[in-house]
Amino acid sequence: MAYSIEKQTSNWVNKVPEVTIFFWLIKMMSTTVGETAADFLNVNLHFGLTHTSVVMAALLALALFFQIRTKHYVPSLYWISVVLISVFGTLLTDNLTDHFGVPLAVSTMMFAGLLLTTFGIWYTKEKTLSIHAIDSVKRELFYWIAILFTFALGTAAGDWVAEGLQLGYVNAAILFGALIAMTAVAHFRFKIDAVLCFWIAYILTRPLGASCGDLLSQPIANGGLGLGTTLTSSLFLITIVGLVGYLTMTEKKVTQ
């Protein structure tokens, strides 16, 4: 039977996990891994930016194929897709900067425009941007396109603020962390729309993660802590695997 992206089956359930502290922890670390892993493959393993981009595009396409084919939330599959799309989103910005000489300020505005366009089309078609309603293939495709642009936008914005505006990694991390805190206050204290606040926080965690990744991995002479991309990527990947393993076991207990 042909698999149509227009079909919404009755046994579909929401494909995105509940937004808990674990969600934000893994999301935050996946953004850091996206920043450091791209550098690791490009520089340390000498893949080069083009080959790294091709490899990650293939892996991401494979992961999303299986992610979209499943009809329920699978923690390991979902978070593998997030980590890979984080790396690929970073590479989109890096390619524009290094290969085409596009200024980070321009990349930031361009990806912001693409993300807003995606949200506009998504809302026009589906009348919701809620992640609690990712229950059809069409909605999930909109979701992953939006996620890709949030990572690319976050990378460009984070690098622009930290390097282009010369605020440094620490100040950039503090800035984006403060903006996330303000978003949380806006929602919990002033009851600003939950969907709007979620997407603002989701976008901001990317430059926060990028700034933290650079802070940990970059040499001390460049304003970092000098841990290197290998150690930084390994530490966060191990933590992500542990948390996803915990969520997988919890999910099995809930469904039994």
Rank of each mutant, 00 (worst) to 15 (best):
T108N: 01
V55M: 06
A194L: 15
H72V: 08
A38G: 14
V161P: 03
E18I: 07
D135M: 00
A37P: 04
A112V: 15
F151D: 06
T52F: 12
L62N: 02
V55F: 14
H132K: 11
N14T: 05
A133R: 14
H72K: 04
K7M: 03
L227W: 15
F190L: 12
V87E: 00
I134R: 02
H132Y: 13
A152D: 01
P219T: 02
V161A: 15
F65T: 05
A162Q: 07
G113K: 03
Q8F: 00
T52N: 01
E6C: 04
F236C: 05
V43I: 10
C197G: 02
C197W: 13
M109L: 15
A105E: 15
E18N: 04
K253N: 06
T183S: 09
S217M: 07
E126N: 13
I238H: 10
I85W: 14
M110W: 12
P17K: 01
T248W: 10
V43N: 08
A57Q: 02
L96Q: 06
T230N: 11
N14Q: 10
Y3C: 01
A210K: 08
G213L: 15
T183K: 09
V185N: 04
G101D: 04
D193T: 08
Q8W: 00
S107I: 09
V102H: 10
I5H: 00
L237Y: 12
L216C: 03
H51M: 10
L96A: 09
L91Y: 05
V19N: 15
D98K: 09
T70V: 11
S10I: 10
R139P: 00
D193K: 00
K252T: 03
I68R: 00
T50G: 11
A38L: 11
A38S: 13
N95P: 03
E35W: 08
C197A: 02
Y202R: 07
M182G: 10
S30G: 03
R206L: 08
M1W: 14
L116C: 05
C212F: 15
S30M: 10
T93C: 12
K138D: 00
F151R: 10
A172I: 13
T255I: 10
T230Q: 14
S53I: 01
H51K: 14
S217V: 05
L231R: 02
L215Y: 09
A194N: 14
T155P: 03
K125E: 09
A172S: 13
V54G: 04
D214Q: 13
T183C: 14
L153E: 03
A146H: 08
F149W: 12
T230H: 08
M109E: 11
T93L: 02
M28L: 09
L167P: 04
L216R: 01
T9H: 05
Y169E: 12
L114F: 13
A178N: 06
I174M: 15
I131C: 05
L115Q: 11
D193R: 02
V137K: 00
